[in-house]
């Protein structure tokens, strides 16, 4: 019992406990996930558009992009962006300006870009599947009504697309949440990294890593509840039509 109590005390807030550090790490994990999402979705949508209705080159690029970022280990993608991306930016800058002001690729941005690229490769496939759910007849109908391509996309395709894509995207979000843990390897003090630092000082690896795992589980549970709520909201029109 004393042992359990002393372990719980390690999670206290303030200078003696690690509760606040781990909470701050959790906040970074969640922030990274949320920052990656819009970036990954937009990129994924564009890649899906390229694969679905682009020209030959666009389709080839889209397929290559998907193959590469679904094939590479996320950890490797992250290290390439973090170390290689910095060098790339510098060389491009050196070509454009004399004595450039350094642009820093910090761990958060590197994580966001790397995870976002992986996310977009997968989500482009989800969008591609969702495109197929929209029947040609609807496109022809909107053409017949005189809608331009852009208006068709906005008024007919998008509203349905995101509903079709939602389950797939929700799944990808849950995967993304877990993959944010990889940024701990490049020193971003996320949930796992904060836990690691706590372990270094307290020498209680089992307890702290278990706590970290449980926090990831709680994040997944909260996400599932949120996703359920969004899905019900997205399908509200369907339900009414069916009733």
């Amino acid at each position: 019992m004393d042992r359990i109590e002393s372990l719980i005390q390690l999670l206290a807030w303030g200078p003696n406990g690690w509760g606040d550090e781990i909470a701050a790490g959790t906040a970074i994990t969640v922030a990274l996930g949320i920052a990656t999402l819009p970036f990954g979705l937009l990129l994924g949508f564009l890649i899906a558009l390229a694969k679905h209705s682009g020209g030959r080159t666009a389709r080839m690029f889209g397929n290559l992009y998907t193959t590469v970022f679904r094939g590479l280990p996320e950890l490797l993608t992250l290290l390439i962006i973090y170390y290689g991306g910095q060098r790339l930016i510098q060389e491009v800058q050196a070509l454009l300006v004399e004595d450039p002001e350094p642009i820093e690729v910090n761990a958060f941005v590197a994580g966001m870009v790397a995870l976002g690229m992986v996310f977009s490769a997968y989500s482009s496939e989800v969008f591609l599947g969702a495109f197929k759910g929209i029947t040609i007849g609807q496109i022809e109908a909107s053409r017949a009504l005189g809608l331009s391509r852009l208006l068709t996309l906005r008024l007919v395709v998008l509203p349905q697309l995101w509903r079709f894509a939602l389950p797939g995207i929700a799944n990808l979000w849950l995967i993304l949440l877990k993959e944010t843990s990889l940024v701990s390897v490049i020193a971003l003090p996320d949930l796992l990294r904060s836990t690691f630092i706590a372990v270094g000082v307290t020498k209680e690896p089992f307890f702290f890593f278990l706590v970290a795992c449980l926090i990831y589980l709680v994040l997944a549970m909260i996400s599932s509840i949120g996703i359920g709520w969004i899905e019900r909201w997205a399908n509200r029109g369907e339900r009414r039509a069916g009733a």
């Binding site: 990889l182 890593f209 970290a212 990831y216």
Partner: peptide, 17 residues
């Protein structure tokens, strides 16, 4: 529901403890 990296740490460093 948990990252493979965290599971690996749990087993490796947990076993060390």
């Amino acid at each position: 529901g948990t990252p493979l990296l965290a599971q690996t740490f749990l087993v490796y460093y947990g076993a060390g403890e």
